[in-house]
């Protein structure tokens, strides 16, 4: 599924979460550089990843379990001949497990030349946000530690937690990794 398709799906998703976001983007065009984020919701908290890092978005794929890795590594998938790991964002951020639904998506992102899939409950929308509306990470947000966050975007009444994707995969790897092995 590519981004166009995603944009089409967007409406559908918006309806399901009953949020009206149209019209927001118009008045921010004048406020400096604009960053586009692909956002997703986890238990009512909206997270965003820079759209430039997003490679593609997939439906829930066939996973191959990858033993001896931290629990948040759900497994690996075959993306056109590439073996890429899937990070369960819920587990990574300490949320409770959720069921795989029709809306479950994998956001494939590219970070430090690696492709990583982020398993999320849904893809909410593509958000345009001026750089000036992004604050540095300050306090802990729902247990998500600062290392994973590059900033917090303010958009009217919404807050979007912008993720530091390069840290999602590897931070605390050693600690968690060795704990689990045997």
């Amino acid at each position: 599924m590519d981004l166009n398709e995603l944009l089409n799906k967007q409406d559908l998703i918006s309806k399901t979460v009953e949020k009206e976001v149209a019209g927001e983007e118009i008045d921010i065009l004048t406020e400096g550089r604009i960053i586009q984020l692909v956002s997703f919701l986890l238990d009512e908290v909206e997270y965003g990843v820079d759209i430039l890092a997003v490679h593609e978005i997939l439906r829930f794929p066939d996973l191959t379990r990858l033993p001896n890795t931290p629990e948040y590594i759900k497994g690996v998938i075959n993306l056109r001949g590439n073996v890429i790991p899937i990070v369960d964002v819920r587990q990574r951020f300490g949320y409770k497990d959720a069921q795989v639904t029709d809306l479950t998506r994998v956001i494939v992102i590219e970070t430090t030349e690696k492709l990583v899939g982020l398993l999320v409950d849904n893809v909410y929308q593509v958000v345009r946000i001026p750089e000036s509306h992004i604050d540095p990470p300050s306090e802990l947000i729902e247990g998500v530690s600062e290392e994973y966050i590059t900033g917090i975007g303010r958009l009217k009444d919404r807050l979007i937690v912008i993720l530091n994707i390069s840290n999602i995969l590897f931070m605390e790897e050693e600690k968690t990794g060795s704990d689990k092995q045997y």
Binding site: L66, P67, N68, T69, I73, V76, N82, V83, I84, P85, K114, L115, V116, L169, F170, E173, G177, Q181
Partner: peptide
């Protein structure tokens, strides 16, 4: 290539 070395694999 996309992740890291995994023990045993």
């Amino acid at each position: 290539q996309n992740y890291t070395t995994v023990k045993g694999f």
